[in-house]
Design a binder for these strands. Sequence first.
DNA 1: TGTCAATTGTCAGTCGCTGTCACTAGCCTC
DNA 2: GAGGCTAGTGACAGCGACTGACAATTGACA
Lengths: 227, 227
Amino acid sequence: MRVPMDTAPPPRPGLRERKKRRTRDALLRAAVELFVSQGYEHTTVDEIAAAVDVSQRTFFRYFAGKEEAALALEELTVAHFVEAVRARPPHEAPMEALRQAVLSGWHSINEVVESVVPVELYLRMYRVIESTPVLLAAHLRRAAESEETISRVIAEREGLDVDADPRPRLAVAVFSGVMRVTERQWLLEEEFSLAGIHALTSRYLDQVGPALLGNWRTARRTSGSEA
Amino acid sequence: MRVPMDTAPPPRPGLRERKKRRTRDALLRAAVELFVSQGYEHTTVDEIAAAVDVSQRTFFRYFAGKEEAALALEELTVAHFVEAVRARPPHEAPMEALRQAVLSGWHSINEVVESVVPVELYLRMYRVIESTPVLLAAHLRRAAESEETISRVIAEREGLDVDADPRPRLAVAVFSGVMRVTERQWLLEEEFSLAGIHALTSRYLDQVGPALLGNWRTARRTSGSEA
DNA sequence: TGTCAATTGTCAGTCGCTGTCACTAGCCTC
DNA sequence: GAGGCTAGTGACAGCGACTGACAATTGACA
């Protein structure tokens, strides 16, 4: 409202703002480093605060809880992915748009994350999340929330009312289910890389059709290992 | 080992056992009643313990945490459902077996639950879970765990290795995704009943196919409301 | 430079949860 | 059926996550 006719580039944020951002980044980085190195449960909020040399109270002013600090990186990823869905050309069918969005999302994930912590750390954090019950739970809940967001995006693309037509939510639920299986399998790999998730994603999505069909036996050729 | 050749019917459990069971049931019932009436967050463990007139310490000897007490009923349901899947005739295709299992599972849910708390309370508790972030998170994590269990059951039915063939996990993930959407929609209904979930389940499962297909527009007839 | 408001530290307190220890009460054997 | 064994419990102390309140500090802006 201050500068009506201007696409005003962000001026300088002011010292206060910069300081705040630095504190938050430092807290987040310290938290993730501690979580990755000694585990989530064995890291106290006091430790994190001490590592950045602020009071425990300050930590809670930046993060709603320990949990939020642990999932902050992932939140970036999710937002990035939702944007990717929005960016898909309108002519793509829903499932195809979702598929392309994840694939392109993983490509550009580097830039999103690297500004806060090294990607290396980001990937390690994923394992901490998967192996820590409370974090996994919180992770799944957030995933459920983004499913709702994405459902609305899809519905809008198709010109439908999410509450009248179940297909947007169903499609997204199915897609998310597959992505979770993919993600989980990916984390099991020894040296898991961004290239790995890419390949797995495509492969698993291609298997959804066969998985839904009736007769699995006849569809198999050698019944040997294929993973 | 005491009675080698006997399918020995459970003798009497002994006074100690009976007392234990009564304490647990009382705690569970009190917990659920309090959660439903005043909310999960606003109920302290001390309150629950006081309602049954035991020490707080005793509560934690029966339940790993407040959360476990809140989800204990649901655990019954899940176990019941897993059994229902196991009980399906082997000739049914995976998705069909899952579908029939839920439907038949809902039919017999009454007996499973009623022995602990009135079904009425059980249904209300579902809403508490859905509307309480930490509970919803824990709920989803448990759901993820049972997905793994069910995947193994399905794989076994089909004579496959879960780790070699992704289809069991994919099919279950897809199915679970649909069930979650169903469950969520069901809880939104004003007067939600067991009959309601039954109808919704069938309807949504039938919509999975259409939801996965490419062109949603052409498949629609009037684009009017259909929910 | 002085006022205003945002940020922070300190302190006290609640709640979930755990370890410890002594005590009571079923249970089992002789 | 008396005595010992052990499971179940209560009482207490303590930790860690989190919150509210208030005072002290510090950037912002006139």
